[in-house]
């Protein structure tokens, strides 16, 4: 089983545990999560609030380190990496899309999308092409010099997606990406994710909205800090290997 499937798995998580200290009390949020994502897959992580799905998303996104367990991202064990190594992993391998967009308010659309490239150390004359390509991909090239406050919610999320893909990550990690959008704009954003997925990007979306799960190939349900169940949906998948 191993060997061949190893590289096919972009996320390989086993017995992942994480607890927080709230005051003097230790709150166990993740109680041993085992979970994997194949390269090119479109996966939804579902769960009610307090289920631990946000914590799981933070660990998957290398924003935080687990207490114990292993997390192999794209063939690299990341649970033991240092802070600056994690920053590099986030920069190179992961594209984040957040519910509240998280654009920098005083920077223009262009500057927001450019930011991951700056931290990647790409010289300015090579950044421009990449930024414009990413903005074109989300059809936002006409708003390059606007500030986020001058954009609608849907537009902001598209800019955020452009920022997520500009450095060509292997994994797109979205946290309630449609949570602040109406139905029509949600559709548009989800279509973008679908398109990215068809072009080979692995997409993992954390949500509590059942509507979103219909876009996925597979849904992972989290409850009380463990994986409750998994559900494979019949979706026309491109990257799926079965």
């Amino acid at each position: 089983m191993k060997g061949a499937t190893e590289t096919a798995k972009i996320i390989l998580v086993s017995s992942l545990r994480k607890s927080y200290l709230i005051g003097s009390e230790k709150l166990e949020v993740l109680k041993g999560v085992d979970f994997e994502v194949r390269r090119g897959e479109f996966v939804c992580i579902m769960g009610p609030s307090g289920s631990g799905k946000s914590t799981l998303m933070h660990l998957l996104g290398c924003l935080d380190s687990p207490d114990s367990g292993s997390y192999i991202l794209d063939g690299v064990e990341v649970s033991t990496l240092s802070d600056s190594q994690l920053a590099r992993v986030r920069n190179q391998k992961i594209g984040f899309v957040f519910q509240a967009f998280f654009l920098i308010p005083w920077a223009t659309v262009y500057e927001n999308v450019e930011l991951p490239l700056i931290y990647a150390g790409i010289p300015f004359y090579r950044r421009r092409k990449k930024v414009l390509a990413a903005l074109e991909y989300v059809d936002m090239q006409h708003r390059i010099w606007h500030k986020p406050s001058q954009l609608s919610g849907g537009e902001r999320q598209r800019v955020a997606i452009a920022r997520a893909i500009v450095n060509d990550p292997t994994l797109i990690l979205a946290d309630e990406p449609t949570g602040n959008l109406d139905t029509k704009r949600s559709q548009m954003v989800m279509n973008l994710f679908k398109r990215l997925n068809k072009q080979g990007k692995t997409v993992v979306i954390v949500t509590h909205d059942p509507e979103i799960t219909t876009w996925a190939e597979r849904v992972v349900y989290v409850r009380d800090g463990v994986i409750e169940k998994e559900e494979v949906l019949k979706n026309d998948s491109f990257g799926s290997s079965f």
């Binding site: 996104g61 802070d83 986030r90 998280f102 654009l103 920098i104 931290y119 920022r163």
Partner: peptide, 9 residues
């Protein structure tokens, strides 16, 4: 945000 998209300390 900056840290999330790859800024180091």
């Amino acid at each position: 945000i900056r840290r999330a998209i790859g800024a180091t300390k």
